[in-house]
Protein backbone atom coordinates (compact mmCIF):
# COMPACT_ATOMS: atom_id res chain seq x y z
CA UNK A 1 0.00 0.00 0.00
CA UNK A 2 1.38 3.44 -0.83
CA UNK A 3 2.50 5.51 2.11
CA UNK A 4 0.17 8.45 1.89
CA UNK A 5 0.47 9.52 5.46
CA UNK A 6 3.95 10.93 4.94
CA UNK A 7 2.50 13.30 2.34
CA UNK A 8 0.05 14.44 4.93
CA UNK A 9 2.68 15.49 7.47
CA UNK A 10 3.54 18.56 5.37
CA UNK A 11 -0.04 19.70 5.32
CA UNK A 12 -0.96 20.48 8.87
CA UNK A 13 -3.60 23.08 8.00
CA UNK A 14 -5.80 20.29 6.71
CA UNK A 15 -4.70 17.76 9.29
CA UNK A 16 -7.72 18.32 11.42
CA UNK A 17 -10.96 16.51 11.41
CA UNK A 18 -13.84 18.24 9.71
CA UNK A 19 -17.38 18.32 11.07
CA UNK A 20 -20.15 16.02 9.91
CA UNK A 21 -22.31 18.84 8.69
CA UNK A 22 -23.14 18.17 5.04
CA UNK A 23 -21.75 20.41 2.33
CA UNK A 24 -25.30 21.32 1.28
CA UNK A 25 -26.19 22.33 4.82
CA UNK A 26 -23.10 24.52 5.27
CA UNK A 27 -23.66 26.08 1.88
CA UNK A 28 -27.29 26.95 2.71
CA UNK A 29 -26.21 28.43 6.05
CA UNK A 30 -23.63 30.51 4.24
CA UNK A 31 -26.07 31.63 1.53
CA UNK A 32 -28.78 32.61 4.01
CA UNK A 33 -26.64 34.41 6.57
CA UNK A 34 -24.95 36.38 3.81
CA UNK A 35 -28.13 37.37 1.96
CA UNK A 36 -27.98 40.96 0.93
CA UNK A 37 -31.60 41.80 0.24
CA UNK A 38 -33.19 45.18 -0.36
CA UNK A 39 -36.09 46.21 1.90
CA UNK A 40 -38.49 44.98 -0.80
CA UNK A 41 -37.65 41.31 -0.11
CA UNK A 42 -38.20 39.34 3.05
CA UNK A 43 -37.69 35.68 3.91
CA UNK A 44 -39.98 33.72 6.21
CA UNK A 45 -39.16 30.38 7.84
CA UNK A 46 -42.24 28.45 9.01
CA UNK A 47 -39.84 26.31 11.04
CA UNK A 48 -36.70 28.33 11.90
CA UNK A 49 -34.83 25.06 12.53
CA UNK A 50 -35.40 24.00 8.90
CA UNK A 51 -33.21 26.08 6.61
CA UNK A 52 -34.17 24.07 3.52
CA UNK A 53 -37.83 25.13 3.28
CA UNK A 54 -38.89 28.74 3.47
CA UNK A 55 -40.66 31.48 1.57
CA UNK A 56 -39.70 34.81 0.09
CA UNK A 57 -42.06 37.77 -0.18
CA UNK A 58 -41.32 40.44 -2.75
CA UNK A 59 -43.06 43.83 -2.43
CA UNK A 60 -41.92 45.80 -5.48
CA UNK A 61 -41.58 49.54 -4.78
CA UNK A 62 -41.57 50.51 -8.44
CA UNK A 63 -42.90 49.27 -11.75
CA UNK A 64 -46.31 47.95 -12.65
CA UNK A 65 -46.43 45.41 -9.80
CA UNK A 66 -45.87 48.08 -7.13
CA UNK A 67 -48.28 47.69 -4.22
CA UNK A 68 -48.38 43.90 -4.43
CA UNK A 69 -46.81 41.33 -2.11
CA UNK A 70 -45.73 38.21 -4.02
CA UNK A 71 -44.76 35.06 -2.18
CA UNK A 72 -42.52 32.26 -3.44
CA UNK A 73 -41.80 28.96 -1.77
CA UNK A 74 -38.21 27.71 -1.77
CA UNK A 75 -37.39 24.02 -1.36
CA UNK A 76 -33.71 23.07 -1.29
CA UNK A 77 -32.65 19.44 -1.58
CA UNK A 78 -29.59 17.73 -0.18
CA UNK A 79 -27.88 17.87 -3.56
CA UNK A 80 -27.69 21.69 -3.43
CA UNK A 81 -25.83 23.51 -4.99
CA UNK A 82 -25.47 20.91 -7.72
CA UNK A 83 -29.26 21.07 -8.01
CA UNK A 84 -30.94 24.49 -8.02
CA UNK A 85 -33.53 25.37 -5.38
CA UNK A 86 -37.13 24.56 -6.36
CA UNK A 87 -39.06 27.81 -6.43
CA UNK A 88 -42.80 28.32 -6.94
CA UNK A 89 -45.14 31.26 -6.60
CA UNK A 90 -47.67 30.35 -3.93
CA UNK A 91 -50.37 32.71 -5.30
CA UNK A 92 -52.30 32.79 -8.55
CA UNK A 93 -50.86 35.88 -10.19
CA UNK A 94 -51.15 37.58 -13.58
CA UNK A 95 -47.63 37.71 -14.90
CA UNK A 96 -46.23 36.72 -18.30
CA UNK A 97 -43.44 34.64 -16.75
CA UNK A 98 -45.45 32.89 -14.04
CA UNK A 99 -48.16 30.35 -14.86
CA UNK A 100 -51.35 29.73 -12.93
CA UNK A 101 -49.74 26.81 -11.09
CA UNK A 102 -46.97 29.06 -9.78
CA UNK A 103 -44.20 27.83 -12.11
CA UNK A 104 -41.67 30.53 -12.83
CA UNK A 105 -39.72 31.05 -16.03
CA UNK A 106 -36.35 32.23 -14.77
CA UNK A 107 -33.31 30.84 -16.58
CA UNK A 108 -31.11 30.48 -13.50
CA UNK A 109 -33.70 28.23 -11.89
CA UNK A 110 -33.25 25.62 -14.63
CA UNK A 111 -31.12 25.67 -17.71
CA UNK A 112 -28.61 28.29 -16.56
CA UNK A 113 -28.21 27.17 -12.95
CA UNK A 114 -24.57 26.75 -11.80
CA UNK A 115 -23.22 25.83 -8.37
CA UNK A 116 -21.44 29.21 -8.17
CA UNK A 117 -24.81 30.96 -8.13
CA UNK A 118 -26.49 31.30 -4.76
CA UNK A 119 -29.84 32.01 -3.13
CA UNK A 120 -29.18 35.73 -3.36
CA UNK A 121 -28.83 35.52 -7.14
CA UNK A 122 -32.12 33.63 -7.39
CA UNK A 123 -33.96 36.15 -5.21
CA UNK A 124 -32.59 39.11 -7.13
CA UNK A 125 -33.60 37.35 -10.36
CA UNK A 126 -37.15 36.88 -9.09
CA UNK A 127 -37.47 40.53 -8.09
CA UNK A 128 -36.27 41.53 -11.54
CA UNK A 129 -39.20 39.66 -13.09
CA UNK A 130 -41.55 42.12 -11.39
CA UNK A 131 -39.62 45.15 -12.57
CA UNK A 132 -39.13 43.88 -16.12
CA UNK A 133 -41.64 41.19 -17.06
CA UNK A 134 -40.53 39.53 -20.27
CA UNK A 135 -43.12 38.81 -22.95
CA UNK A 136 -40.60 36.75 -24.96
CA UNK A 137 -40.46 33.93 -22.40
CA UNK A 138 -44.14 33.44 -21.68
CA UNK A 139 -45.63 31.02 -19.20
CA UNK A 140 -48.95 32.83 -19.03
CA UNK A 141 -49.48 33.23 -22.75
CA UNK A 142 -52.52 35.48 -22.47
CA UNK A 143 -50.65 37.89 -20.23
CA UNK A 144 -47.62 37.87 -22.52
CA UNK A 145 -49.73 38.47 -25.60
CA UNK A 146 -51.55 41.34 -23.95
CA UNK A 147 -48.28 42.84 -22.79
CA UNK A 148 -46.74 42.93 -26.25
CA UNK A 149 -49.98 43.83 -28.08
CA UNK A 150 -51.77 46.26 -25.87
CA UNK A 151 -49.70 47.63 -23.06
CA UNK A 152 -52.41 49.82 -21.53
CA UNK A 153 -54.83 46.91 -21.30
CA UNK A 154 -52.06 44.80 -19.82
CA UNK A 155 -51.39 47.40 -17.12
CA UNK A 156 -55.11 47.52 -16.31
CA UNK A 157 -55.19 43.73 -16.11
CA UNK A 158 -52.20 43.70 -13.75
CA UNK A 159 -53.93 46.21 -11.46
CA UNK A 160 -57.23 44.32 -11.57
CA UNK A 161 -55.57 40.94 -10.96
CA UNK A 162 -53.66 42.25 -7.96
CA UNK A 163 -56.97 43.27 -6.39
CA UNK A 164 -58.24 39.73 -6.83
CA UNK A 165 -60.15 40.32 -10.06
CA UNK A 166 -61.14 38.04 -12.94
CA UNK A 167 -59.37 38.17 -16.27
CA UNK A 168 -60.57 35.98 -19.12
CA UNK A 169 -62.30 33.63 -16.76
CA UNK A 170 -59.42 33.26 -14.32
CA UNK A 171 -59.78 34.46 -10.79
CA UNK A 172 -56.50 35.86 -9.49
CA UNK A 173 -55.46 36.14 -5.84
CA UNK A 174 -55.63 39.43 -4.05
CA UNK A 175 -51.97 40.20 -3.48
CA UNK A 176 -52.22 43.82 -2.34
CA UNK A 177 -49.68 44.48 0.40
CA UNK A 178 -51.36 45.17 3.70
Amino acid sequence: MIKIWSMKKNEDAAAKKKPKTSAAQIRVQKDLTELDLPSTMKTNFPDPADLLNFSLTITPDEGMYRGGAFTFSFAINTNYPHDPPKVKCTQTIYHPNVDLEGNVCLNILREDWKPVLNLNSVMVGLQYLFLEPNADDPLNKDAALEMSKNRDQFLNNVKASMRGGHIKGTQYDNVLAR
Binding site: D99, V104, C105, R110, E111, W113, D137, P138, L139
Partner: peptide, 8 residues
Protein backbone atom coordinates in the same frame (compact mmCIF):
# COMPACT_ATOMS: atom_id res chain seq x y z
CA UNK B 1 -32.65 21.27 -18.82
CA UNK B 2 -34.87 23.08 -21.25
CA UNK B 3 -36.24 26.56 -20.55
CA UNK B 4 -39.58 26.13 -18.89
CA UNK B 5 -41.28 28.54 -21.31
CA UNK B 6 -40.09 26.45 -24.28
CA UNK B 7 -41.57 23.37 -22.68
CA UNK B 8 -44.80 25.23 -22.02
Amino acid sequence: AFPICTIA
